[in-house]
Simulated assay, not measured.
Amino acid sequence: MTAESAVVLPVLVLVAMALLWGLCVMAVRIQCVDAARSGARAAARQDPAAAVAAVTRDLAPRGSTVTVSREGDQVRVTVVAGLPGPLRGLPFEVREEAVAASEETAPQEAAGAGTDSEVAP
Rank of each mutant, 00 (worst) to 15 (best):
72 G>I: 02
62 R>M: 02
81 A>W: 04
73 D>V: 14
113 A>K: 15
106 A>K: 08
64 S>P: 02
95 R>N: 02
89 G>W: 08
64 S>N: 05
69 S>R: 10
88 R>W: 15
75 V>D: 04
104 E>M: 14
109 E>D: 15
74 Q>I: 06
84 P>F: 10
102 S>Q: 07
111 A>W: 08
81 A>S: 11
85 G>H: 07
52 V>P: 00
50 A>I: 05
53 A>S: 15
100 A>K: 00
91 P>S: 01
103 E>C: 05
77 V>A: 01
52 V>Q: 01
73 D>Q: 12
102 S>F: 09
55 V>G: 01
110 A>M: 14
90 L>F: 06
79 V>I: 07
53 A>M: 12
58 D>P: 05
84 P>Y: 13
79 V>R: 08
69 S>E: 02
85 G>R: 08
102 S>K: 14
109 E>Q: 06
104 E>R: 13
79 V>Y: 05
63 G>A: 13
73 D>F: 10
89 G>D: 09
72 G>E: 03
56 T>C: 02
72 G>A: 13
110 A>G: 15
64 S>L: 00
112 G>A: 15
100 A>G: 00
53 A>D: 03
59 L>R: 13
65 T>F: 03
93 E>C: 07
50 A>H: 09
99 V>E: 13
109 E>T: 11
87 L>H: 08
81 A>Y: 06
83 L>F: 13
54 A>Y: 08
108 Q>F: 15
96 E>M: 03
50 A>L: 03
103 E>M: 10
